[in-house]
Every structure is written in C-alpha cells, then in structure tokens.
Nucleic acid binder design. Structure first.
Lengths: 259, 259
DNA sequence: CGATCTGTTGATATCCTTCAATTTTGGTGG
DNA sequence: CCACCAAAATTGAAGGATATCAACAGATCG
C-alpha cells in the first residue's frame, strides 16, 4: 500500500490498525461494510431506549453520544462516539436498547446490517479479531469512566475527558494528539462527568488561567498534557493502543494460510 | 430435563438460560469447560493490572471484584463478580489487563484456557451466542454503574446496588429475589459507589429505620423493593433477562439443523 | 438582526467527606 | 470454649467540594 493510500485511510481503519495490521483484502472488506450511509442533523436521536437493535454502524463524521435519561429529565452521557467508532456489535445480542444514541452535531454514519456484519466476521479472521478488540476497548473506556466518576474530583474529571478525547481522535487519524475540535457544549461535558454545567465552566476557567489548555470557539488545545494527566491521575494504557496479543497475531496468521 | 436436574444446574447455566434455552448437549459442553478448578483465600489477587490475559474463568462460589487502584491508594471497584459470572472473554483480545481482580471471600473458580473457550464457541452456536450475550450484559451493568455514579445521590446508589445484587443472584439461581448473603463489607460498597464507608453506613441506617431492608450479620433482605427501585430510579430492564432476540434464536436453530 | 442557546460570574445552600472516638463483630490460637 | 486482637460497624462534629439559583454577556443561526 502506498503512503498516499494510507493517508486517506478511514477513521475506522486507522483506529483498528492500532490493534492489528489490516492487509488490503481486509481493508476492502471493511470498506464494503460502509456502503450504506445515513446523515443526521444535530440533536437527533439515532437509536432510542427500548428499540430492538437491528443494525450496527460506524460513525464516519460528526459526533454522537450514548445516554440515559432519568425520570426527572436529567441526562447521563455514557460515552461520546467519534469518527471511526464502531457501535452496536454487542447490542445485537440484546432484545432491547437500555439507552439511547443521539447526534451532537450533524453526523453521518455507515449502517451495517446484522447479517453482513456476521458474514464479514466469519470470512475475515482479522476483521473478526479487530472488531472484538474494538468492543474490548469500548469496555475499557467505560471502566475508566466509572473510575472517573467514582474517584476523581471535578478538575480531574475534566482533565481526564479532554485527554481521552484528544487521544481517541488521534487514534482515528484526526489531529496531532494535542488539539481537536471540541464539538460538544459544556453542558454535554457536565452530563458526561456527573457535574453541573456551571461547575464544568469554572474548572475550564481554572485550566485556562493555569495555561493548561486553550479553548476558544470549540477549538481545544492541550498545552501541558503531562500536567493534565497528573491532575487526572491518568494512564493512557487503558485505551489499549499497543497492538494485539501474540496469540491473536498467530491465529490470524494461521487463518491467512488456510483461507 | 427433569426438575431435579434443573435444580442442580450450575449458576452459569442458570444465568445463561435467561437468554437462551440450552439443550443438554450445550450444557455438557459448558460443563466440560469447568473441569479445571482453583480455590483462593479471601482478599487474594487473582489477576493483576498489567498482566497478560491468558485464561478466562467462571466464578463458581464465593465473590470477587474487578478494581483499579489510584496512585494515592484509593480503590474503585468496577464490578462485583458473583457465582455464574463469566470473566475474561473480552480481555483475551487485549495485551494487558487495565485493572485487577481480587477475591472478597474464599472463592473457587473454573479456569478456562483460551483455546478451549474459542473451540467451544466455534462448535456450539448456542454457547457462542450465550457467551456473547453474557458479555453484552456485563457492558450493560457497567453502563448502569456509570449512571449511578454520575446521576444518583448516596441513597439512590446504595438502593441501586442492593437491588442489582439481589437480582443478579436470583438470575444465577441463588436466593428468592429478595434476600441474599451480602458477602462484602460496607467499605467495599463504598469503593464501588464512590462514597466513604462512613456515609454508606449512614445510608444503611436510614434504610433500616425506614424498614426498607434488614441487614444483620451479612444477611440482607429487601423489605420493600418497589420503594428501593423508586429511590434509585431503577428499572431492571438493563439486566436483559428477557430472552434472546428472534434473530439469535433463528440462527441457533439453523445451527442445530446443519450441525 | 433578533431569538435562542451557550458561556460566564456571584451568592448561598447542601450533600458528602474528613477526622476522631467507641462499640461490635469475627476470626484465631491456646 | 474462651480470651484476645484486628477488622468492621457505628456515631458525632466540623469542613469542603459541588449544586443550586439568578442574572447577564456573548455566540450562533436561521
């Protein structure tokens, strides 16, 4: 593959390549899954709590979030979904959604029918392994979220979220690992971190005064990642970007020979 | 299957049967996975953060928890592991553990080697589907945990945890859905709920005064589940105990014919 | 270019933590 | 089976982090 070809690699391919090197054959199979596109306006529910999960999707552009609404109307955002994220693999094993998914800005997704997805996983061991890893990473991200809400104060929570977003965008091939477009509002951040919008704002002010970040018109730049990681007591290892275990590599290699 | 046979069903079989009806053939395959047993004393680390995941396990008896330790020594419990829980399926796709697992009381587990597990999933579509569901349920439990820490106050958090434990034990065939042995300490509960042991204690006192629970020498009984659910703003649907989606049933039925 | 959403700031309230001490429980060895 | 010891549970008092309420400024978008 040429460098030019690599540079146009999709966010999903970029993300999965942190786990396994995907040969052209697998990249094509992955691209074949993303033929059916849908666009949504900002603040639109893609999947509603109680729905029967029928399809999975890859977010191509924009931003969405999983969330739950409490009976008094308050919202807990479970995770932000960014380009390259693969959603709904696990949900296909469930009868009903226990949470909703909505867009935050105008967003386009590639819809993947259940049957097509399962076939691709059966026929392409590498795709199968990579999707499995992707689901495992999602779980790890959820765990870190629990740690953040359970044991980090407001400053640490905001620092954690900003670092995670910048790192996840970088893994998807977007940004340089220091700056991104922060598409959501401070109120969204509050809903993700279990804080009030007012308090999130005060923390951000503090970070600006301390020259830890620049945030202007939704352009975020982390000026001192080391100190932010320190404030959050955060270790990026939980994102599992260091490649696949040896066993997985071997199994895929065997698949190549026999396939 | 006779009622007598059902009554001795393992916690794991009991749990998975809430998703799919497992014929004797699959139950045997499941039992074959649980030949290699290990026993651990209380407060023993089974898996350490940073380890390479080598095997999965089913908890047979006792209790364990997944947790992360902060750099100042504080602990966040990610989830309690009870009999019938299947652990480490997802982790096999990862190079290193991002958290630890330790026993809370004397505990026995069935160790499942990676290769055996993958073979069983290949050869038994129903086992495959059921394990997939189990992983999906684990994710849903994590999501509810995020909601609890993000949007529930101390009383709601404790009410949520007590209900979840009683329901999960019931799904594993232990208890009547109202009472269980609460094996962990109030300090463990605090570490799971992002509270201090002192405050957990005060909430429990309140619940006792309100005649919502009886808790004596680690024997817990929920006296008014409806009110506890109301306090927690909790809906048991997130445990996904209502069976498999139609597509899964159909796929497994096809597997039966061709297999 | 006005309406509405988002961000910002200040004052006050509250839930939960922290610290400290005491009682109770549970486990262990003699 | 009891004595002893450590761990767990319990209670009280005081402090702090974050929420709540309210008002206004600034940004965004039809």
């Amino acid at each position: 593959m040429t460098n030019a070809a690599k540079s146009v690699r999709s966010p999903a391919a970029s993300r999965l390549s942190h786990f396994l090197n995907l040969p052209a054959r697998d990249l094509n199979a992955l691209a074949d899954l993303t033929k059916v596109m849908r666009r949504f306006r900002a603040h639109t529910e893609i999947v509603a709590e109680g729905d029967a999960p029928r399809w999975a999707f890859i977010l191509l552009d924009g931003m969405a979030c999983r969330f739950r609404t409490m009976s008094d109307g308050r919202r807990q955002i479970l995770t932000f979904i960014i380009p390259g994220d693969i959603c709904g693999l696990q949900s296909l094993a469930l009868k009903r959604m226990d949470h909703s998914i909505a867009t935050i800005v105008p967003t386009s997704i590639a819809v993947i029918k259940r049957k097509l997805l399962l076939e691709a996983m059966m026929q392409h061991p590498r795709i199968n392994a990579a999707l499995w890893w992707s689901a495992s990473q999602d779980e790890a991200i959820q765990r870190e979220h629990v740690v953040a809400l359970g044991r980090r104060n407001a400053h640490a929570r905001v620092a954690y979220l900003l670092c995670e977003l910048v790192w996840r965008y970088a893994a998807a091939g977007i940004g340089d690992g220091r700056a991104i477009r922060l598409l959501m509002t401070q109120s969204d951040i509050a809903d993700a971190l279990g804080l009030t919008p007012v308090h999130v704002n005060r923390v951000i002010q503090d970070f600006r005064k301390e020259r830890l970040i620049v945030l202007n018109r939704h352009e975020l730049r982390l000026l001192d990642i080391d100190r932010l990681m320190d404030i959050a007591d955060l270790n990026p290892a939980y994102l599992h970007l260091g490649g696949a275990p040896a066993e997985v590599e071997q199994e895929c290699a065997r698949g190549d020979v026999s396939g």
